[in-house]
């Protein structure tokens, strides 16, 4: 095994382990902590794919900022009593298992059953695509319109958050 493979497999094992622990844990705060571990491992996996920018942004935005939101939601929903949550999720469980199986079959299909193109091969241009310079260059030239639209998306999110959380206007 090469160094890359060792890094990939060790990260993959920890990622799968922490993902399972997120679902299995009874205490939502423990789930959130495992999710942080999961995000860090995913960041490492992005690094093995030469996507440095995505890796660091993933850790900054997801492990840093989105996790804060998850913890806030746990606090706001007041999930201290974990027993209340159990025994009401039967239908959700069935749907979840069905979707999970469908996704698994799709993955198997993509990984080389009956397809001509395998996703396990890396694109020859991959080493340079992930760098911050390359992303900046294409983002501000070729994908200029999606970038500008993002600002409207963020604006809509800001207004939505304010309207949802702040009913009365203060003067």
């Amino acid at each position: 095994m090469t160094f890359e493979q060792i890094v990939f497999y060790s990260l993959a094992v920890v990622t799968i382990f922490s993902s399972i622990m997120v679902v299995v844990q009874r205490n939502p705060v423990n789930s959130a902590l495992y999710l942080i571990l999961d995000f860090f491992c995913l960041g490492g996996l992005y690094l093995t794919l030469n996507a440095q920018f995505i890796a660091i942004v993933h850790i900054l935005v997801y492990a840093g900022a989105i996790m804060v939101l998850f913890v806030f939601v746990i606090m706001l929903l007041n999930l201290g009593d974990t027993h209340k949550l159990a025994d009401r999720l039967n239908m959700k469980k069935i749907i979840g298992i069905a979707f999970g199986l469908a996704f698994f079959v799709e993955l198997l299909y993509l990984l080389g059953f009956g397809t001509t193109r395998s996703i396990s091969q890396q694109s020859p241009a991959a080493p340079e695509i992930g760098t911050i310079e390359y992303i900046g260059k294409v983002l501000f030239t070729k994908f200029l319109f999606p970038f500008e639209v993002t600002s409207f998306l963020l604006l809509a999110a800001i207004i939505g958050a304010v309207i949802l959380a702040k009913k009365k206007i203060i003067h």
């Binding site: 935005v61 806030f72 992303i135």
Partner: peptide, 26 residues
């Protein structure tokens, strides 16, 4: 909800800052 409000708004402006990095490099 005030705590959540600050966190949500922080994330939105955090994403704005993320876009500044590739721009600053180029």
């Amino acid at each position: 909800i005030k705590y959540y409000m600050v966190a949500v708004l922080f994330i939105l402006f955090d994403i704005e800052v993320v876009f500044l990095y590739p721009w600053a490099v180029n």
